[in-house]
Design a protein around this nucleic acid. Structure first.
Lengths: 135, 135
DNA sequence: TTGTTTATGCAACAGAGTTGCAAATGTAAG
DNA sequence: CTTACATTTGCAACTCTGTTGCATAAACAA
């Protein structure tokens, strides 16, 4: 599906900036940081980028992951996420050499047995090590 | 063991600031943020606190966790961690109501089957939901 | 094409974290 | 218990990340 249609389907206005951001996030399954996205976008204001990513997250187009260095990253949602309901329980792999963050959409997430009184609503797992490119 | 001895054993100088920080981290199994630690420490400079926590992490006295809001938190290492070798593969529970971060030292971490070429050296899992106090 | 709504860019700000340097403190030796 | 050296602390200044308010520009429905 093309980016403009996806944006429209989520009830957002189709702007050149939004289409550009979504197009960049399409190809790879990588979670990108602001620092990485900004130079790829040309003359789009960094504040605008913050707002676009936040909007995209709210409507379920992208999800946010914080990598092992504390850097916030954004990746496309592959499953049918909707506003305020993300199916983002998948694993992420963070390469300690090249710092790339991979979405591991097809790996299963193991449920954990918590102590009495604790109730889990979700979990975020980041596996770190060397990716196939750096290994 | 008392804080001063632990600090000395790791090869660090025993200072009032370091003892104070370690004493505060002792009681609970909670991971505390800078914002939470600062007011508990009295007149210790915030830069000093950054340096103490970084030093403690390097020698294996504390470990760093980034919570689901992106806030960096520090907790005592319960296992025998050494310089640059943390056994910090345990789970963390982050309460979405009170924002407390618990170290779940005794829960097992499940190994994950990664795609070819990827080599894991560790993993960080944060389970979020309601803690026993808020549930 | 016009008018209204929404998005963008800019300025200014708040918070987290780092670095350099002078003063204060810890520690070991005399 | 005093001296001397090494390390730590506090301060100033800075970078990087992220947010808010407001005027202008762009989307889109009529």
């Amino acid at each position: 599906m093309n980016a403009a249609q996806e944006i429209k389907d989520k009830g957002l206005k189709v702007t050149t900036a939004r289409v550009k951001v979504l197009d960049i996030l399409q190809p790879d399954g990588l979670a990108l940081s602001h620092m990485e996205l900004e130079p790829m976008l040309g003359k789009i204001d960094r504040i605008t980028l913050y707002r676009i990513l936040n909007d995209f997250e709210e409507v379920g187009l992208v999800h946010k992951v914080i990598d092992i260095d504390g850097v916030t990253r954004f990746a496309l949602c592959k499953h049918n996420c909707t506003t305020h309901h993300h199916n983002d329980n998948h694993l992420h792999f963070n390469c300690t050499a090249c710092h790339k963050m991979y979405c591991m959409d097809n790996l299963p997430v193991t449920a954990v047995n918590l102590p009495k009184g604790f109730k889990a609503t979700g979990q975020s797992t980041i596996i770190y090590g060397l990716c196939s490119g750096c290994n």
